[in-house]
Amino acid sequence: MAGGEEFVEADNAEAIITRIEHKSRKIESLLKQSKPVEALKTALEGSPPKTQDERCKVVYISFLALFGTNWIVVHRAIMAIKDVDGMFSSLDPEYYDILMNFCSCIYTFVANSGYSCFYFALVIAWPECGDVMRWNFNLIRFSSENLLAEESLAAQDCNNFQILSRIAIYRYLYRGLSTGDRPTCDQCLRIHDKLTERAGLGCILRCLADTVNTV
């Protein structure tokens, strides 16, 4: 994406913001053209060849800009996704690595910012991402010896990431069902069905038990 070339020095905060604005405009237009997969790809690619951390931050922030933190925007994102499985299958495996790189710092962000819509969008699009990330991390964990302690921590984070993200989805689904609006309920029930298959009843309980993080 264009952002990569424009952007050489990442230290400049203003430059980051400008780039994110540019990027999020593009993403938003893609979303308007009902190309949610393209939007996700745009968000993931073209990150500057800086440190992982930097790249994660950028994508994270652009996701925040894209989906916002309020219900209305998330609602739009839900309705934009027509085919849950299809969306996942059209995402190339090359993005797995980028996604994998996010999770450790995403977790930190999430811890700081509460449950963000970032995961929501990501995991709706790709419910296995938690599993894949964890799997990847386990690979790293077994292959590299010097980073063993750090990586095992990261694997734990991925696990948490997966749990938290699924809870977040349930939260939004129940919020959607509470609207009573027929198309919204239809879509929410469809996702609910798939998610319960993957995440189990325990996840519903965790969502219901959580009184602090509400939508």
């Binding site: 734990q156 696990n159 995440a199 189990g200 325990g202 309980l205």
Partner: peptide, 9 residues
Amino acid sequence: QNVAFRDLP
């Protein structure tokens, strides 16, 4: 350490 599982509590 927290461990979440997929079934009932």
